[in-house]
């Protein structure tokens, strides 16, 4: 994660706590999860199961599946989900990395 995110946010919205890979973050309630993570400075959402290459959101419209994260044990598209309080978010398929 970078100290300054490559993205900035125009709106001010009430924030709620979530965790990303165990690190606590405060994200805007009801915001698009992928957008909120990018603004929070998360630049790698997952590593590919094929080569372990880092990936992050690409299309923001639910078509590319690059923004996959794991929430409550289910792998989902971050760009298709709204932020809610207490989300436990993890990089998708990360337990693969040892295996590759």
């Amino acid at each position: 994660m970078k100290p300054v995110s490559p993205f900035l946010e125009l709106d001010e919205t009430a924030r709620v706590p979530v965790t990303f890979d165990g690190t606590p973050l405060d994200l805007p309630q009801g915001a698009n999860l992928a957008a909120a993570l990018l603004v929070a400075g998360v630049d790698v959402f997952r590593h590919t199961p094929v080569s372990g290459a880092p990936r992050a959101p690409f299309c923001m419209m639910g078509a590319c599946f690059e923004c996959l994260v794991e929430i409550d044990g289910v792998v989902r598209q971050a760009c298709m989900i709204d932020v809610t309080a207490g989300m436990d978010i993890r990089k998708a398929h990360e337990d693969f990395r040892g295996a590759v």
Partner: peptide
């Protein structure tokens, strides 16, 4: 990471008010 479609950039702006 950091490479997106331009449409994605626009969606970030439209939907979330987020800019690169």
């Amino acid at each position: 990471p950091g490479v997106m479609t331009a449409g994605a950039g626009q969606i970030l702006l439209k939907q979330s008010g987020v800019l690169a």
